[in-house]
């Protein structure tokens, strides 16, 4: 957990659109270590996917401008020429997408798609690559892999496809795996299988994983550390236990409180975060959350708070979080749930 794998510094991603430049990711900094699973949570439009796709530089470069630094192995990926970037993608860094049906190519067999990065990056022969493909399918828990390797994506079920997709991304033994909502399209019983698989693979292969999701339950289950995003910024960063036990940012606190629980009172009024997420073209001037925060004052509306270090493992972007927590909890110790 000590070696630094990826270091993102003050990343800004601007898109050129008809309505002018839109900054989807605004001043995002974080570090991923080897063997660590880091959750990136937030609601739709908060920039979590853009952050991950910026790391891979997947956007057409004529419509997007990156600012800041993405350091991987000590090099800034943003300075890489396209050819060099292509060597990284699918090899040292690879990515799993939400919908396995649209991210696997329907006209090639599963085996071909797993073998392709091996032949491309590791210069394996076709035979070797296919043998490895069978091994990888077995590793991801697909029954009778020597048969499945010759099948097409449409012949597999949703859960199987996601396993196959994971096999594709693992082919070159990446150091960093970016998983963008990999279980959102799946049923809960299948989701449980895939989460188990990812946990096992993480232990076995010691790769760093950035896990993007909107589901706080999944985060609690899988991740070591969590970053919460809101409107293009990280508003809170903490290890998973403290995030749920003692959330600092009003947004995180509201989010955790608003999900229906599996224990305790039912049918009660759920606490809500009022209003809607503002659009990226019409961002609040000061704190991004100020339009929905019940504690917002003049300062919040005028000035953007910095991501402040609260303790070794915790960072928060809020002017008043200490007062708010003191006020909300009346000073008593936060009860940890059993």
């Amino acid at each position: 957990m000590t070696t630094e794998l990826l270091n993102v510094e003050q990343l800004r991603t601007h898109f050129y659109t008809e309505k002018g430049t839109v900054t989807a990711v605004d001043d995002v900094s974080f570090t991923i270590h080897e063997g660590e699973i880091v959750g990136l949570v937030g609601e739709s439009g908060c920039g979590k996917s853009v952050t991950s796709q910026s790391i891979m530089r997947l956007y057409d470069e004529y419509m997007v401008e990156y600012e800041g630094k993405i350091e991987f192995n000590g090099d800034n990926l943003l300075n890489y020429p396209i050819k060099k970037m292509q060597k990284i993608r699918g090899d040292a860094i690879s990515m799993i997408f939400q919908d396995p049906l649209s991210s696997l190519n329907p006209v090639f067999t599963i085996g071909k798609q797993i073998a392709e990065p091996l032949m491309l990056h590791h210069k394996k022969s076709k035979k070797e690559a296919y043998e490895r493909a069978v091994e990888l399918l077995a590793l991801t828990g697909i029954p009778s892999p020597e048969k499945r390797v010759h099948e097409y994506p449409h012949q597999l079920s949703g859960g199987m496809r996601q396993r196959a997709m994971i096999a594709v991304t693992l082919a070159c033994e990446p150091k960093l795996l970016i998983a963008d909502e990999p279980t959102t399209a799946l049923d809960v019983t299948i989701q449980a299988q895939i989460l188990n698989l990812m946990r096992d693979l993480n232990k076995k292969l010691q790769m760093g994983i950035i896990f993007i999701t909107h589901d706080l339950g999944v985060v609690a289950e899988l991740c070591d550390r969590v970053m919460v995003m809101y409107l293009g910024q990280i508003v809170e960063e903490a290890d998973v236990k403290t995030l749920f036990e003692q959330p600092l940012h009003p947004y995180t606190r509201g989010l955790i409180k608003s999900i229906p629980q599996m224990t305790g009172e039912r049918k009660s009024e759920l606490s809500v975060i009022k209003g809607n997420v503002p659009s990226l073209t019409n961002k609040p001037k000061g704190c991004r959350f100020s339009t929905r925060c019940e504690f917002a004052d003049e300062k919040c509306i005028e000035e953007m708070p910095p991501l402040k270090t609260h303790s070794d493992t915790k960072k928060v972007r809020c002017w008043h979080y200490e007062e708010i927590i003191a006020r909300e909890e009346g000073g008593h110790v936060h009860a940890s749930s059993t």
Partner: peptide
Amino acid sequence: SVPLPDPNVQRERVMLQGDI
């Protein structure tokens, strides 16, 4: 299988094999 938003809970999980 429902993921709980509480990292302290360790549950015994009934894992289902295969798909519907």
